[in-house]
Write a protein that binds this DNA or RNA. Structure first.
Lengths: 145, 145
DNA sequence: GGTGAAAGAGTGTGGAC
DNA sequence: GTCCACACTCTTTCACC
């Protein structure tokens, strides 16, 4: 993991459809040498997978919110079940602080969030929730190498 | 945007290195027909870009937190400047609720978070912050079509 | 949307530093 | 161990039905 590898990761994050030949010329390497490095980065798990970034608006997910969940005792497993079953839930993190977990949610509208909250409370494990509705996303980029 | 397109998006999210021929056979379409659909999905902006998912651990980003920021009046632009300049900040959302903005942060360690907080307060626009340190990530998937 | 063909990319092998 | 040059196979992607 040297500066070459970091540059490769940066290029791939920007656009993974880049050809190896193109990236190789940018870094003054031969295509096979670059290919070798990418293969190793994948084998080592640094690159977990190649995927596409979708536009939430185009998929009718106009509503985004962060939901803080306070549970009755330790109930992460029950929470995870509900979160995983609902495609609206993009992330779930167990956190330290006044809340037990933070959920990142994307639904069609506010009613979709209410649906999720209902399901969360129905488990009996949730004491209270606090939802922060996203008004505008200023920045949303992945990890930068 | 029919059921074919949704299936294509699902397949590409899982693994964007799939060949068109492979996906076409899964959906009982010809490679060029599938290629046409993907091209249109990209042109329409449904597919924003093709990228790679990296492992935060492998890049020494062991520490993750959500930071709630309360500003002195409307100061999103100043906030955005600081957030954008810091590669540790992955997301910044303006939200409704008791906070003004939520930041998703990934650093090497807790000291990295403190650094960011210092920079935030140095702008003079921040009244208070509340940080929720991620103990464990239970779910982290993108949008599902 | 399907068919066939061209241009070009991905990906092994062998050899040199 | 890492990089380069060559070559072969498969994919992408075009024009036409």
């Amino acid at each position: 993991m040297d500066s070459f590898d970091r540059k490769i990761l940066g290029l791939l994050r920007e656009d993974a459809t880049r050809t190896y030949a193109d990236m190789a010329s940018h870094l003054h390497l031969s295509p096979p040498a670059l290919h070798d490095r990418v293969k190793k980065l994948k084998a080592k798990g640094v690159i977990k997978r190649t995927t596409v970034e979708l536009d939430p608006q185009a998929l009718d997910r106009h509503f985004c919110a962060f939901v803080h969940v306070e549970t009755e005792g330790y109930a992460k497993d029950i929470l995870k079940e509900v979160a995983e079953a609902d495609p609206a839930v993009e992330e779930m993190h167990g956190v330290a602080g006044s809340s037990s977990a933070i959920l990142k949610v994307r639904t069609h509208d506010a009613a979709g969030l209410e649906e999720l909250l209902r399901r969360l409370f129905e488990t009996g494990a949730v004491r209270r929730t606090e939802s922060f509705v996203v008004l505008r996303t200023y920045l949303e980029r992945g990890i930068s190498p």
